[in-house]
Design a protein around this nucleic acid. Structure first.
Length: 111
DNA sequence: GCCATGACGGAGC
DNA sequence: TGCTCCGCCATGG
């Protein structure tokens, strides 16, 4: 175990009906630029942990596909839709609406 | 211990 | 708007 522990902690904090990007998770986990490690970490722990991995998507707002996942991406989409998240015609999620802003600082909320 | 790969991100064309 | 290339670093052979 290592910094990944922070990644799992962050993912578990994603609220129902919202999503976060790998890069965002990495940043919150104090691993800026290591978005890849986030996805890799989730892939290794997902099946044996209570982590809502389906709420983690890429920066494009879509579900990442990979030959090692086969059809898991379809399951992920189903889970997200079950939470009320809508996909557009391109199968992507509107991050401007569903993106989890993580732990927002009060000062940053001035926008 | 070295080499190749990978749920990504961002810049460049 | 969409595709391609490079960078980052842990894991496995």
């Amino acid at each position: 175990m290592s910094s990944y522990d922070a990644i799992y902690a962050i993912v578990q904090q994603i609220p129902y009906g919202q999503v976060a990007t790998y890069g965002q998770i990495a940043e919150l986990a104090n691993l800026p630029g290591r978005a890849r490690l986030v996805g890799y970490a989730l892939f290794r722990v997902a099946p044996e942990a209570d982590i809502p991995w389906h709420r983690v998507i890429n920066a494009k707002g879509e579900i990442s596909e990979s030959p090692v996942r086969y059809g898991s991406d379809y399951l992920q989409r189903s889970l997200l839709e079950a939470e009320g998240i809508q996909f557009n015609a391109q199968g992507r999620i509107n991050l401007r609406i569903y993106r989890w802003q993580g732990v927002i600082d009060a000062a940053q909320n001035s926008q």
